[in-house]
């Protein structure tokens, strides 16, 4: 039975299984701290509980897109001379981007719900919200580009260049609250400044960030392995089709 299960989990390993359990357990703790034990905010009341999902989502999205940018840059620099390394870099860039898109989507959804309680509206086209949705659509485009049928190297290179261009939007999203007037609040935690939180709220937030980061890491590793399997399948599929057509042609001649 255990043997069969191990065969079934194609993208798992002992390390990722452990990571999976750890992230699952920490998510349960986030539910408890976020919904039950953390205090009400003096201004926002219970609505502050959405902080513990909204903020980790966007931080992970930023982190994922930065990984995509770094690995895309390395791909452009190294893939031509080292094809195997190039495929590895491309897989990391692709899987990180997909996770970034999922977490940006969740940022938008959790933010809209939070906005409904605090601002009084789900959505406004202010600079932060507009640039965030632009970032979401841009990386959706990046993921679509990765599906575009082409020679794998050409496709990956094209995607890497688009990813590098898309990176320009990251600082714009982050600093939009400083550069323009926005309905969205400014950054609460910035390097070198005292956080604008009391400790009970800050600790719950930081724990949630750690927990969701573990989840994102688990997702990223599995997504990477799935991309690798899909590449093998694509190559095998093409080889088989070529063999079949050749056989057909030989019979016909």
């Amino acid at each position: 039975m255990q043997q069969a299960e191990r065969k079934d989990s194609m993208t798992g390993s002992l390390a990722t299984t452990t990571l999976g359990w750890a992230s699952g357990a920490s998510l349960i703790v986030v539910l408890v701290t976020g919904l039950i034990t953390s205090p009400k905010d003096a201004n926002q009341g219970e609505a502050v509980r959405l902080l513990y999902v909204h903020v980790p989502m966007i931080w992970i999205a930023y982190g994922s897109f930065i990984i995509t940018a770094v690995y895309s840059g390395l791909f452009v620099a190294k893939a031509a001379s080292r094809p195997d390394l190039g495929r590895h870099l491309d897989r990391v860039a692709g899987s990180a981007a997909e996770i970034g898109v999922v977490f940006t989507g969740l940022t938008l959804v959790s933010g809209a719900l939070w906005g409904r309680i605090t601002w009084g509206v789900y959505w406004q086209w202010d600079a932060r919200l507009t640039t965030t949705v632009l970032m979401f659509v841009t990386y959706l485009g990046y993921l679509a580009l990765r599906k575009l049928p082409a020679d794998p190297y050409v496709r990956s290179r094209r995607a890497a260049i688009v990813a590098l261009i898309a990176t320009v939007n990251l600082p714009i999203v982050h600093y939009s609250v400083d550069w323009w007037r926005t309905l969205h609040q400014g950054a609460s935690i910035t390097v070198g400044n005292k956080p604008e939180y009391t400790n009970d709220i800050l600790i719950a937030l930081l724990f949630a960030v750690v927990a969701f980061t573990l989840v994102a890491l688990w997702l990223g590793i599995h997504r990477y392995r799935v991309i690798r399997l899909e590449e093998i399948r694509e190559e095998e599929g093409i080889e088989m089709a070529i063999a079949a057509r050749r056989a057909e042609a030989e019979v016909g001649s």
């Binding site: 003096a42 309905l183 604008e196 939180y197």
Partner: peptide, 21 residues
Amino acid sequence: RMLIKHTNEYTSDFEARVEAN
């Protein structure tokens, strides 16, 4: 139409919220 542009301060201290705002 009114939108509440809440601040980026989070506090569980109800006494201090006026000064925090």
